[in-house]
Nucleic acid binder design. Structure first.
Lengths: 193, 193
DNA sequence: GTCTATACACGGATAGAC
DNA sequence: GTCTATCCGTGTATAGAC
């Protein structure tokens, strides 16, 4: 088949490398090597490294929206939908154990670099946050929906960070289980009324 | 007064810069500038950048032990001791809001760099983990003391990551409050027997 | 112990041929 | 659109004077 759009190949490779090595530590040479393209070439597609970062974040934002849409299509049950989010820890464990959460690690790296794209990177969190809050609202938690959404994301960030540091799958699994039980409790409250 | 040991000054400056800018992104020039020393000079004290990192981690480990000892001296009450840990989020908020947790962000960075010192960095987590588990054991939770310790650390990591991304002090404070209430519940169980 | 000078590789970025 | 060649700053690290 004809190779996909070179620009998109660059973004895909950068997306992966920024996750695995960090943004700052990833060089043009790294990306060029992954795409099998000459270093000089992709200045045709992107003028600066920051432009690549912007494109990567845009891609991640789109991927996030697609993932959320898929979860929404999977089940109409709000609790089940929230569970889908929590279970990313299991689904992506192979990568998370090595590199942590792509969203959390990028935002903190950009914070340390004092990089302007930090706000854009945080948008990915906001996407999850808004959608999770919707689900909690559907469970009758109109007052604290946003707070609960933040708690769920915070939970997953903590587990990702610690489970990666200790490379501890058992801890990750027991925490997912615990969170799932907590969710059952909230869902039960909502059906009781 | 006579300037403190140059070696220690270097380590202190590196400690701070590694936290604020990240290890990889901090150059010798940055450290030299902070210590007001010539670049060439501190090769007398450290042969490589990795050696500075080792010294920084050693310092952090010592600082952690000192902090724990201070908390232990502050109160004999295990619940209060655990609360001291949780309240770091408030105490160090000025820095955490900008740079996250020093321990969590360093371990994840070193994981991405595939740096050998990652294991040493994780030791700082282990120090907290062991001590927190002791406190939960003192509260009668002999079975799941270590798991609870991990939950507390995981909690603080999640809050640090999210509160930093959104620069949201209110969220951090409400979460510290929630965790504190959870702790009260555990402490109450222990006195009931 | 501290400095200056310098070696040398790698980083991002540009020019211009094909 | 893709390549080669190249510029220039910065990064780690060394040599050697003081």
């Amino acid at each position: 088949m004809p190779p996909a759009n070179t620009r998109q190949q660059i973004v895909n490779a950068a997306n992966d490398l920024f996750y695995r090595q960090g943004f700052d530590h990833t060089s043009f040479a790294d990306i060029a090597g992954a795409v099998q393209i000459s270093r000089g070439n992709f200045y045709y597609h992107f003028k600066t490294k920051d432009e690549i970062l912007d494109a990567v974040i845009e891609t991640r934002l789109a991927d996030t929206r697609a993932m959320i849409a898929a979860w929404a299509a999977d089940s109409p049950d709000p609790a089940q939908r929230i569970r889908s989010y929590i279970r990313i820890l299991i689904t992506n464990w192979d990568k998370i154990r090595c590199f942590g959460c792509p969203v959390g690690t990028l935002t903190t790296e950009l914070a340390k670099l004092d990089h302007g794209a930090g706000r854009a990177a945080t948008e990915v969190f906001s996407e999850f946050r808004g959608w999770l809050a919707e689900q909690f609202r559907a469970l009758g938690r109109t007052e604290d929906a946003d707070e609960l959404a933040m708690q769920v994301i915070s939970f997953s960030q903590g587990v990702a960070t610690l489970a990666c540091a200790f490379d501890d799958e058992a801890f990750m699994r027991s925490e997912v289980e615990r969170m799932s039980n907590w969710l059952d409790g909230i869902a039960a409250e909502s059906t009781r009324t």
